[in-house]
Design a protein around this nucleic acid. Structure first.
Lengths: 215, 215
DNA sequence: TTTTTCACTATACGATCGTATTGTGAGTCG
DNA sequence: CGACTCACAATACGATCGTATAGTGAAAAA
């Protein structure tokens, strides 16, 4: 795993790290599912299978627990992304685009906490959102814009304003996943299934490149 | 206004209706901004400028208040939509598409409660979501699919599976609005401004029709 | 082996949550 | 006009919220 810079040597510190890890995993999930206000120390402690007071011992306030959970989640993201993108050397063809988009969607499916927190926080202005943007999201935004511009210069993506292009792509990629429970209830369709995911990315790529995507 | 089928004659009933209206407006807003769990009778009462006990007098439980707020919101939507779509007789050209999409986005901007409730509820399975889908959303979904298919038969929209097409369009239309506070913080761009909205719809239409949209 | 540390627990605080009960006074109606 | 209705207010209930504090006992340090 190697979750920290310096591996703990003590038995005590080892246990401590493990406990903190379990709590952070739980917190990220609960914050993502319920949002900051509706999440509680009690629910987070219950999911982590620890006492509520223990959560407060490690992370004094709810604010601090939230920030720690965010840091934990983005840390995991940073560590996990290469796995998903390992098969993509460079994005040069529409096939590469397909691979990239599918990797992004698969990552989002496998890390619901990341997407959930993003979505819950980003729709309402707040001090938490400011912190989140300043510390993590702005960097992601700028990288996304950079990628879009590069792909445009290669003629891979249409000549639209890069920000709008990124918004369009981000919207397309995340919308279906976010309203998956809705779609399941309304139409009985599992929009998180592999077939749907494939078709969805195909549709997006064919729109962006202006031709029918290959399988 | 004529909000009810039978206009109240009494002074008492008139006042009652007005009070309920104010509470429902407030409730829809708070539910949309905070979600069901984080919203409280106290916060809803405060925004409506009435006593908390009065809210519970009119809508006994939180569940009932939520359902009433939903009904109220969708009722308003049903009443308001024709205003936004009045200038659109039929969707035949890409220009019509542009008008339609912009009308949808403008409506979403003017009725944040509707979008907010949709988004907050649709990302997590729940009994509330089931109720919402069964009573209101499924119908909207089916209408959206119908529109997409018709537009496809006219050659206005690309030949993709209708559901995916609708997901793509819905995602594109709503994403930018939903993460507006994020974009504002990250890049200092107001993605709710009229210029941005116009450009965004232009981008989407040009993608869908495969050509640069006219201004 | 003795002392010290500290991860973890037990318990309690005031505030607020959703809900329930009782009172009251202005508007309605016979 | 007088009896009655009911929109609205006052208040309280137990549960849970985030937070604080005083232990406890096993691991670490001496």
């Amino acid at each position: 795993m190697n979750r920290t810079q310096t591996e703990p040597v003590n038995l005590r510190e080892k246990q401590k790290e493990e406990t903190r890890y379990r709590i952070l995993e739980s917190a990220a999930g609960v914050f993502a599912e319920l949002g900051f206000d509706a999440a509680s120390f009690a629910s987070i402690a219950e999911r982590a299978e620890v006492k509520k007071a223990l959560v407060q011992y490690h992370f004094t306030t709810k604010e601090e627990l939230w920030k720690s959970a965010i840091t934990h989640t983005w840390e995991q993201r940073r560590a996990a992304l290469p796995v998903y993108f390992s098969s993509i050397r460079r994005v040069e063809t529409s096939e590469d685009l397909h691979k990239l988009f599918k990797a992004i969607m698969r990552f989002s499916m496998d890390h619901p906490a990341w997407v959930g927190i993003m979505f819950r926080e980003s729709s309402q202005p707040s001090e938490r959102l400011n912190w989140l943007v300043d510390n993590y999201i702005r960097h992601d935004y700028e990288q996304g814009l950079l990628f879009a511009q590069e792909a445009q210069e290669q003629g891979l993506l249409p000549q639209l304003p890069a920000l709008e292009l990124m918004h369009l792509i981000s919207g397309c990629l995340t919308y279906a996943l976010n309203v998956a429970p809705l779609t399941a209830r309304a139409l009985g369709i599992d929009s998180r299934s592999d077939e749907y995911l494939d078709g969805h990315v195909n549709a997006l790529v064919s729109l962006l490149t202006g031709r029918t995507a290959t399988k």
